[in-house]
């Protein structure tokens, strides 16, 4: 069948094109115009001269970043936080889903689920405020307990060796319950006959988990893992910003917070944009590559 000409299609779909027009305009004004703004990373951008009046400087700011001692530390911090989050944060919801699935008491199970989803809805400001208060060396509850056990109080948020643990643990606290939803759903799609067959063969609960449940959710696990690798470097700005301070910058300063500081606070627009773009391109490649991989595996893809 020959498809009608563009003009005919436009006439047929005019109501839909009209509906979509404001959304298209929005995406152009608020997403695509800023994308062209990345040209300022190749300029000596000045607020008063604007893009047209500023001078081109090529890769000056990129070179400046890599000559800066901070660059290595910031990239390392970003990569390590992402890696630890993946390493510890990824298996946690799977384990929780498996354990929830073994609970016999339905009401207790629902209760645990409901409670464990809750932290997902707290704002980063509230979570960071709670952490700062609870971990405070002078008044915090955690240090009261540590002192009660006979140890000296620890200034958790002033000592850089604690930052990564605090960040990753609080991420798990916030996301473990919410993350388990997908896996629980995957478990419910497993054919009950498989469990019956396993029991006939004399498999106990451990064997059933190992040979029926885990293979049953394996596809979901693989896809989630691939997708999360793709987004591993996207360390959210808010929580790191709220929990870090100058005393812990050697472990807590990541790309997002550095760009905010040198760009917005110190006005180094071109330099900050160069760093952001460099990481943006790496992030893009990572998401693209992992998405191709998951598509190749034939299960699902983002687009």
């Amino acid at each position: 069948m020959k498809s009608p000409s563009i003009a005919k299609q436009l006439k047929r779909d005019r109501a839909f094109v009209l509906m979509f027009a404001p959304v298209l305009l929005y995406f152009i004004l608020f997403k695509y115009v800023p994308m062209f703004g990345i040209v300022i990373s190749f300029m000596d951008y000045n607020l008063f001269k604007g893009i047209t009046g500023s001078e081109w400087v090529g890769f000056k700011y990129y070179a400046q970043f890599f000559e800066n001692r901070d660059a290595f530390v910031i990239i390392k911090n970003t990569v390590l936080l992402g890696a630890y989050k993946l390493l510890f944060g990824f298996p946690a919801p799977i384990v929780l889903a498996l354990l929830l699935n073994e609970l016999r008491h339905a009401i207790f199970k629902r209760f645990v689920q409901t409670v464990s989803y809750l932290p997902h809805f707290l704002s980063n400001v509230v979570v960071a405020s709670m952490l700062i208060m609870l971990l405070s060396p002078s008044t915090g509850w955690v240090n009261r307990i540590i002192e009660g056990l006979g140890f000296p109080a620890i200034s958790f948020l002033q000592e850089s060796e604690w930052f990564r643990s605090i960040y990753v643990l609080s991420e798990i606290w916030q996301q473990v319950g919410w993350g388990s939803i997908l896996y629980l759903a995957a478990i419910t799609t497993i054919d009950p006959q498989l469990y019956e067959a396993a029991r006939m063969d004399g498999a106990g609960r451990w064997k059933q988990t190992l040979h029926v449940t885990l293979p049953g959710i394996a596809a979901t696990v693989v896809i989630m893992f691939i997708l999360q690798i793709g987004h591993a470097l996207e360390i959210g700005f808010e929580k790191v910003f709220l929990l870090s301070n100058a005393a812990t910058y050697d472990t807590s300063d990541v790309i997002a917070t550095y760009v905010y500081r040198v760009g917005i606070l110190q006005g180094g627009f071109s330099y900050a944009t160069a760093i952001d773009l460099f990481m943006g391109v790496i992030g893009f490649l990572l998401v693209y590559a992992t998405n191709q991989l998951s598509r190749r595996l034939g299960e699902t893809s983002l687009w």
Binding site: P34, F269, L302
Partner: peptide, 25 residues
């Protein structure tokens, strides 16, 4: 009409953005 193009325009913004400073400016 142009459905695929519109969709690509939207999906691309999930992968790449101008970043903090250009958005601010």
């Amino acid at each position: 009409v142009f459905g695929r193009t519109f969709m690509m325009l939207i999906v691309f913004t999930m992968l790449f953005s101008g970043g903090l400073i250009p958005t601010y400016l």
